[in-house]
């Protein structure tokens, strides 16, 4: 785990893609490095600037419609730099609008369908009504993560391309909002050193092992020293309990509706 240079956590266009506390994800990654004696820093990439190819983690957050269009334009201009960085092992973590921008296309606020970065095959279109509320996701078993807790607030419906896997299965809430062929609802996307999700809250403060998974990829280890996360564990227990109560209420309501 010895490195010569500090871990560089890139916060991409925080003024455009920072609507939902997304800075929190960068803060958590940096702090969890420092608490293990690993030097780390947040590198903010201001809107309008090209993305550097030298970052260890690229964080893409949520944003309003116009901001998302601007961010997309800037990111497409930097896609070669991002490809180089990923070729060198950089990690991509994207939330909400950021997730949509990673895909092949998405619908803008005015209904126009715009090209995304095309890092993964997924498409996002506007759905009826916004998906708002607590979410619980059982992550893909290969990741060996515990249950994820977060909050979602988005109008997009994201369909994964053939052979593209989600981050996990939704047990409470909506996630990508599109039923898979087996009827399950899934959230986000999982690819090589790339994770996208609709969960904010922000998601990393609530899910420290997801944060450590990303850091493990960067540092080349799956054995990071555990940190004393007592407060976070209490918060997780509280949120998961609340979300499951909400999930049960929603299912009862659905059953009543289907019975007519």
């Amino acid at each position: 785990m010895t490195r010569e240079s500090p871990v560089r956590i890139g916060l991409v266009y925080p003024d455009l893609l920072g609507t939902y506390g997304d800075r929190g994800n960068a803060l958590v990654l940096v702090e969890r490095c420092r608490r293990r004696g690993v030097e780390a820093e947040i590198v903010e990439v201001a809107a309008g600037e090209p993305l550097p190819d030298s970052l260890d983690v690229y964080l893409f957050g949520g944003g309003e419609d116009d901001a998302q269009v601007m961010a997309a334009a800037g990111m497409r201009a930097s896609s070669a730099a991002l490809d180089r960085a990923r070729g060198g092992g950089a990690v991509v973590f994207a939330v909400c609008a950021g997730l949509q921008l990673l895909g092949t296309s998405y619908a803008a606020g005015d209904g126009d369908v715009l090209d995304g970065l095309g890092l993964v095959e997924l498409e996002t279109r506007a759905g009826e009504g916004r998906c708002i509320g607590e979410v619980v996701v059982e992550p893909d078993p290969s990741l060996r993560l515990r249950t994820l807790t977060g909050f979602e607030n988005h109008g997009g419906r994201t369909r994964l391309g053939p052979g593209v896997g989600p981050l996990g299965r939704v047990t409470v809430g909506h996630g990508n909002g599109v039923p898979e062929s087996d009827g399950a609802t899934v959230d986000g996307v999982l690819a090589d050193r790339l994770i996208g999700t609709y969960l904010h809250g922000p998601v990393l403060p609530r899910n420290p092992d997801l944060a450590d998974l990303l850091l493990g990829w960067v540092l080349g280890t799956d054995a990071l020293t555990p940190l004393g996360d007592t407060l976070v564990e209490e918060l997780r227990a509280e949120r998961l309990h609340e979300a499951r109560l909400r999930g049960r209420r929603a299912r009862r309501r659905d059953r009543r509706l289907t019975r007519g």
Partner: peptide, 9 residues
């Protein structure tokens, strides 16, 4: 506001 994500803003 039901979503306290803003705490990190």
């Amino acid at each position: 506001g039901r979503d306290p994500s803003w705490l990190f803003d």
